[in-house]
Amino acid sequence: MEGMIAIWQRDVMKFFKDRARLFGSMTMPILLLIVFGVGMGGSMESLMQNVAGGDLDFNYVAFIFPGIVSMTLLMTSVFSSLSIIQDRDFGYMREILVSPVSRVSIALGKMLGSATVAVMQGLLLFLLMPVLGVTIDLVSFFVLLPVMFLLACAFASLGLLIASVISSTQAFQLVVNAIVMPMIFLSGALFPLNNMPAWIDVLVTLNPVTYGVDLMKHIMIDVDQLSREVYVEMGLDLDFFGIPVTPLGEVLFIIGFTAVLIVLATLSFSRANR
């Protein structure tokens, strides 16, 4: 247990020491907020006005903000797992692997480390809220925190599994991009996914990011105030192969996803000789 916490702490400690990383990783989400929020905002808002057929208080940035936060969680937690490959390259992984810490604790410690860093990175985006005209009340914020952490854990376990089977930094980045980018685009994080071809629909339904983004949107946006048409048009009425999706179902799906990946990553660590 303490070994797991030590591994967790180390990654968080190292995050605070690396300021370039802290600010460097903020540029991408800000860029996307500008491109999708401000750039696409106008046309999306007038589109929604048409759907609603009249006056509508609709801020597209507020809609996209939870998506950008989820995307930041995804990118940060997956890329933080790069530390495993670096630890292997710089030899520190040997120090961890010969210690009496169990392999599950190593995997969990690494996952928690990446997830914590990702949540902090995601929370930094909240500082932009006044500029974007997005608001969140305190209760929603405290509901949001565990959801963000759960999501980050899910994504971190994905990164962990990738890192445990891939040995070079370059290959890791390529594989991660090939997996993460489609996960973001097929989640509804950046734009609503409606009237998609059936095969894309299947991918969207199986994508855990879809449910993370949906959970965050439901917590952060006052969805009851939206008309049914806008609700549907913004892709907020998800179904899982015909079954309506509930928040509990979404949480369970994400937990299941995380558990499977952690087990696989642990097995991969136990097999490793170095």
Binding site: R10, M13, K14, F90, G91, E95, V98
Partner: peptide, 14 residues
Amino acid sequence: IGIIFQENTLDEKL
């Protein structure tokens, strides 16, 4: 056991 490895296995950032 304690092991002093051939290669450096310290965390240099710490």
